[in-house]
Amino acid sequence: MRIIIVGFGNLGRGICRAFIGKADFFKKAYGLIPKVVAVADECGAAVDENGLDLPRLLKTAESHGTVAKYPGGRRGKLALDLIEEVSADLVFELTPTNIKTGEPGLTHIKRAMQSGKHVITSNKGPLVVAFKELDSMARKQGVEFRYSASVGGAVPVIGLAKKLLCGNEILEIRGVLNGTTNYILSRMSAEGVPQEMIIQEAQELGLAEKDPTLDIDGIDTACKITILANSVLGIDAKLSDVKVTGIRRVTPDATRLAQEAGQTIKLVGTARRDLLEVSPKLVPQGHPLAVSGTLNAVTFKLDLAGEISITGFGAGPKETSSSLLGDLIDVHRTLGG
């Protein structure tokens, strides 16, 4: 399968490392031979119709900060040009999230679909801004569209819901979907440390952004709830439909009182057909959603199966590569590979 990668930060590099390390496995298990023929970052692009040398590409990007320094690379070459000009089967759209406009990922995805290329993305922005439009466009153009990595990182939330639980009606989805806030709340509960101190330490460890607003104020979780509402529940939801309360007002005293009552405080996103909400909730200790550290967890309430929960790591290039590769194999199988 001929592949274009748009965005070559941690995720783009992570997927290439996975291609290198698991090449034999893909071929033996699935008959799949991924061939990366073009990569674009914010500075330029690297193209080789015969397939890029991935170890060399990674070394170039890490040494020079751009793939444009790869032999024959093109500084200033736009991702949109690559999508239109390079012969490929599938585009990985892995650029940073923009929840206001969805750009530039939204245009990248549309252009890929219009040119007959399948799309896999981790980018929440286009999905929050224009999910129904993109889903409809994929069907109209006859291309596959996958986005498992946009929710839960390595946790196969969307795949579980849409495939393995398809005999059930999903009545409700509740989840701890942001590793940063879960790390902060876990530390507050265990140590009674003020939130501001933990945030600073999380930033130093790389677990929180320099501006952690989207995490702490619940916006990141709200984006994921919006995606789940659209993709799993079939609701035409917008981010503005989600009632959001973050964790800024949660204090060490609150976590202590919760603990004394056999509870723990978690930032929980909830999606039902009559409710979209993100807010701190009391969760009983021992409940599947009472995960600690940077773990994510999701519980599905089902008409036949009752409740089913899944837990795992929700962030990191290696972990997210798991979902990206799962989507690639799913597309390969769907196409008859």
Rank of each mutant, 00 (worst) to 15 (best):
R2I: 04
R2V: 00
I3R: 06
I4P: 01
F8T: 09
F8L: 07
N10A: 14
L11P: 03
R13K: 15
F19I: 14
K22V: 01
F26D: 03
I33P: 00
A38E: 05
A38Y: 10
D41A: 01
C43W: 11
G44Q: 01
N50Q: 14
L54F: 09
R56Y: 12
L58F: 08
A61K: 11
A61P: 07
A61L: 02
E62P: 11
S63Y: 08
G65P: 09
G65M: 07
T66G: 03
V67L: 09
K69P: 00
P71G: 11
R74A: 13
R75E: 08
L78D: 09
L82S: 00
I83S: 03
E84K: 15
E85Y: 13
A88S: 13
D89W: 00
D89S: 02
F92A: 11
E93K: 00
L94V: 09
T95N: 07
P96V: 00
K100G: 03
T101F: 13
G102R: 09
L106N: 04
I109E: 02
R111M: 12
R111S: 13
V119H: 04
T121R: 03
N123D: 12
A130S: 13
S136R: 03
A138I: 05
Q141K: 10
E144W: 05
F145Y: 11
A149M: 12
G153K: 12
G153T: 02
G153Q: 04
G153C: 10
P156D: 06
A161F: 07
K163G: 13
L164K: 11
L164H: 10
C166T: 15
C166D: 13
L185H: 11
R187A: 10
A190T: 07
Q195P: 08
I199L: 15
E201Y: 02
Q203S: 05
G206P: 07
L207N: 00
L207I: 06
L207F: 10
E209M: 09
D211P: 06
P212C: 12
I216F: 04
I216P: 07
D217M: 06
I219F: 13
I219S: 13
C223K: 04
K224G: 02
I225R: 07
N230V: 12
L233W: 07
L239F: 06
R249N: 15
R249Q: 15
V250S: 06
P252G: 13
R256Q: 12
L257Y: 14
A261N: 15
G262F: 13
V268F: 12
A271V: 08
A271N: 03
R273D: 03
E277S: 14
P284H: 11
G286K: 09
L289W: 05
V291C: 12
V298P: 01
T299V: 14
D303I: 05
L304R: 15
A305P: 00
G306N: 07
I310T: 13
G312P: 06
F313P: 00
F313T: 14
P317Q: 04
P317F: 10
K318C: 02
S322A: 15
S322F: 14
S323L: 06
L325Y: 08
D327H: 02
H332S: 05
H332M: 08
L335H: 00
G336H: 04
